[in-house]
Design a protein around this nucleic acid. Structure first.
Length: 827
RNA sequence: GCGAAAGUGGCGGAAUUGGUAUACGCGCUAGACUUAGGAUCUAGUCCCGAGAGAUCGGGUUGGGGGUUCGAGUCCCCCCUUUCGCACCA
């Protein structure tokens, strides 16, 4: 009977030891070569981490330990994204103060990390809910205010009725709150923004300088920024002094603009319909559109809904009168909130023209089609998008569609004073105000005399008051704390009120990687010298869900810090790795889904660790599949990892069974060097799954050698030591224990990653595949250094090859050294 | 609709640059040791056909075509799945 190894005692022992030794602590000032790796810091929610979360941290730790053994003692800090709604909701529901609740959760999560055997440099720990941290959020806000990057404006904003706060555009997914899924409504409010749109071009072009980022993330960011080149064109309104300016990417189709469409919310709309006989009806209709949730208005298949204003504008290209319409398909917050409709050359405009019986006028004509002036929209089956030549639009007749034509039109518009080149973006400014308690107070005081007055630096931090009632009632609880709200104007000393909005927690997370470098510096946001030395982060690891949100905001804030002269770089994260999700069958939905508490398909690491140990979870998690792909958790397959580790353990107990001299020493030596090579190459590209497979093969080779007594004790011990080293990143506890038992004084973590010798892997004689006309027919053994002539002779001597050549003449022989020879016959 | 990634045994998956498809693991089958085994060890396990047998022949990486001595890998067309974007003018 064999008993499994005592993982409980052994794992506790090593976790204690690493903690006591402060095994991952880095001296930032004196380290010679910098390497900064980082996992996205977690939100300390009340839920215990499950094995799906574990993948992220285990992956990072395995990488850390590997780098460490490579002689690269990386900075690998951890902290807490500790502000946010769940803490406040817990306070409302359970009467626990968010601060206590959060602190308790941090303690639990820290213990979970420990139990996974994960090494962080805890001396750098920082948490965003401490005044020591968030005062620098406030400081940064004030600098951005001075720099004109932070500003306040009244605007229609996204409001989540369930979270009772406004949201940034990035936090609205398919018209719903990113956090709770509730449909977002529009509200007109005066709010604080960061002028991220000023950085749109830099954020866009910077992506080209990030070869270490997944293409997918870069594409998502490019789409989100949504740069469009085009022109603004002015259309004078008939009978009024106003002009309507539209944005278009196709100024070359301006002759085909047969009507204008304004978003119903457009500032001119009310004026245009002022004299309309059905003005009241129209106003009611505008209200309806205005109050339609975004999801309905912009959703798939939403019908176009429009009304004529009864007014006309002049097409500056043709001089013709064209009607002005209002319609829901024109969005108020993109471009100028108004378009020139060219139904001949735009699908949406054509659809609307058909629906409303509006005319079409071709600018580009396919071959053989002659100009026919305005025609009914019903006569055109589909729009002509990027083909044909211009006819009947002097001076452009005969010009084909293309970018050069667009440039010519822009120049022509500019010369004639009808318009100008213009670049538009989808990106909106970042709305950072939140009407919630548990966040960084925005350091502003409202004075009746001086308006919004910034809190002076020497009065920072503006501390979040502890004495707050969490009732769940409408409105920010901060607004009901008189001691907080009532203050004096920093400028004149008159009674004034504090801003009660707090900052979006994505502000906290946009620069935290810099705070780790000097977490207790009370004099500045971070140490610029250390930032210049250690940042940017070399390897960032986290989930794809932050492809836009956190990663875009961080890139923006990094540029702000750069422009302030605080950091010498513009990109915060040089290499980015998105680990795949762990999925599992969910009884609730009957489907395989992302592992999550709400889906009820989580696996608790606590029980798994209790039963089979943290090393088993680690090895299985790394073995489950390519780390960047999603992977399905299998409760059964976990035991494979457990069996593997027990096999390793048993080899350790049986080393003394090996004979002093072994007949197959070279074989084991070859297996050892091959394993070093394979595992090293795998880990260089984070392919832990195949690295584990290679280690299983080495383990199998060791077991076989031991069973068959074919390797000497010396070789066996050597190979076993190598196995422990290569396996350490994946199974640190077990390997440290066995390493110690082998009599090594220095810890395995401090040992040097083994080198391999290619000469030791090479064999004297190799097996070559013999193909005849591309089909495998035989295998032959030849000297490893055999030249092409020798290989060909050996292959032609093969009886099987001869049979399959069936007397046909040899046309040529293709030799791939060390692999195969293909005998090609003449047909 | 646009963009991206993917499709390989019963399952998870492997296969740097085109060069022995199915490594490694799970599951399953048989056997060994056992009072017992969800423990451990050994052997087998892509499909079809022939053979008592070691073996031998043929086929196979979603489907179809192409390039090549040679294609899971490259090119073209199609199907399916997942993800992202989606009235952005």
């Amino acid at each position: 009977m064999t008993t499994p190894y005592d993982h409980k005692a052994l794992e506790a022992k090593w976790q204690d030891r690493w903690e006591k030794q402060r095994a991952a602590e880095v001296d930032l000032r004196h380290a010679e070569r910098k390497l900064y790796m980082l996992m996205m810091f977690p939100y300390p929610s009340g839920d215990r981490l499950h094995v799906g979360h574990g993948r992220n941290y285990i992956l990072g730790d395995a990488l850390y330990r590997y780098l460490r053994m490579q002689g690269r003692k990386a900075l690998n800090p951890m902290g807490w994204d500790a502000f946010g709604l769940p803490a406040e909701n817990a306070a409302i529901q359970r009467g626990v103060h968010p601060k206590l609740w959060t602190a308790g959760n941090i303690k639990v999560m820290k213990e979970q990390f420990r139990r996974w055997g994960i090494l962080y440099d805890w001396s750098k720990e920082s948490a965003s809910y401490t005044p020591e941290y968030y005062r620098w959020n406030q400081w940064l806000f004030l600098r951005m205010l001075e720099g004109g990057i932070a500003y306040k404006k009244a605007a229609p904003v996204n409001w989540c009725p369930s979270c009772r706060t406004v949201l940034a555009n990035e936090q609205v997914v398919d018209g719903a709150c990113e956090r709770c899924g509730t449909a977002v409504v529009q509200k007109n409010l005066s709010q604080w923004f960061f002028r991220i749109t000023d950085f749109a071009d830099r954020l866009l072009s910077g992506l080209d300088g990030l070869p270490g980022w997944p293409e997918k993330v870069k594409v998502m960011q490019r789409n989100w920024i949504g740069r469009s080149e085009g022109a603004e064109i002015d259309f004078p309104v008939e009978g009024a002094s106003e002009t309507i300016t539209v944005f278009t990417t196709r100024p070359d189709t301006v002759h085909g603009a047969t009507f204008l469409v304004l978003a119903p919310e457009h500032p001119l709309a009310a004026q245009l319909i002022a004299d309309h006989p059905e003005r009241a009806d129209l106003e009611a209709w505008i209200e309806t559109i205005r109050n339609t949730p975004r999801i309905e208005r912009e959703g798939e298949g939403t019908a176009k809904d429009g009304r004529s204003t009864g007014r006309f504008a002049v097409n500056p290209a043709t001089g013709e009168r064209i009607p002005i319409w209002l319609a829901n398909y024109v969005l108020p917050d993109y471009g100028t909130g108004s378009i020139m409709a060219v139904p001949a050359h735009d699908e949406r405009d054509l659809e609307f023209a058909r629906q409303e019986g509006l005319p079409v006028r071709l600018v580009y004509h396919p071959e053989g089609v002659e100009p026919s002036g305005e025609i009914p929209a019903a006569d055109l089956a589909e729009p002509i998008l990027h083909e044909g030549t211009i006819k009947n639009a002097p001076p452009f007749d005969g010009v084909p569609a293309g970018p050069e034509t667009i440039r010519r039109f822009v120049a022509w518009l500019e010369e004639n004073g009808h318009g100008r080149a213009k670049v538009s973006y989808r990106l909106r400014d970042w709305l950072i105000s939140r009407q919630r308690y548990w966040g960084t107070p925005i350091p502003i005081v409202y004075c009746p005399e001086h308006g919004a007055v910034p809190v002076p630096d020497d009065q920072l931090p503006v501390v979040l008051p502890d004495e707050v009632e969490f009732t769940g009632r409408e409105g920010n609880p901060l607004g009901r704390v008189a001691a907080f709200v009532e203050t004096k104007c920093p400028r004149c000393g008159a009674p004034a009120r504090r801003e009660t909005d707090t900052m979006d927690t994505f502000v906290d997370s946009s620069w935290y990687y810099l705070r780790y470098l000097s977490p207790r510096d009370a004099t500045r946001i971070f140490d610029p010298a250390l930032a210049a030395k250690w940042a940017p982060v070399d390897q960032y690891i986290g989930g794809i869900e932050h492809a836009i949100l956190h990663l875009l905001y961080s890139r923006f804030v990094c540029r702000v810090l750069h422009d302030f002269g605080l950091v010498p770089f513009e990109e915060p994260f040089t290499n980015l790795f998105n680990q795949g999700m762990i999925t599992r069958f969910s009884d609730k939905s009957g489907r395989i889904e992302k592992m999550s508490k709400s889906r009820g398909n989580t696996v608790s690491p606590d029980e798994l660790i209790e039963e089979m140990g943290a090393d088993t979870e680690r090895v299985y998690t790394l073995f489950i599949g390519p780390p960047d792909k999603e992977a399905e958790w299998s409760d059964e397959a976990v035991s494979g990892a457990y069996r593997f580790l027990n096999r390793v353990w048993r080899i350790g107990e049986r080393l003394d069974e090996a004979p002093p001299i072994g007949p197959a020493d070279e074989e084991l030596e070859r297996a050892r060097h091959a394993a070093i090579q394979r595992v090293s190459q795998c880990l260089e590209r984070l392919a832990f799954n195949t690295a584990v497979a290679a280690l299983m093969e080495l383990t199998n080779a060791l077991t076989r050698a031991l069973e068959e007594k074919t390797a000497s004790r010396l070789r066996l011990e050597e190979a076993f030591d190598t196995l422990l080293q290569l396996l350490h990143p994946m199974a640190p506890h077990l390997t440290e224990e066995l390493w110690e038992r082998r009599g090594h004084v220095e810890s395995l973590l401090e040992s040097t990653w083994p080198d391999y010798d290619e000469a030791k892997i090479r064999r004297d004689r190799v097996t070559l595949v013999v193909q005849v006309d591309g089909k495998l027919r035989d295998r032959i053994e030849v000297a490893a250094d055999a030249d092409e002539r020798e290989v060909r002779a050996a292959a032609l001597a093969s009886e099987k090859a001869q049979e399959h050549m069936a007397g046909r003449e040899l046309a040529k022989a293709v030799v791939v050294p060390g692999r195969l020879i293909n005998l090609v016959t003449r047909r």
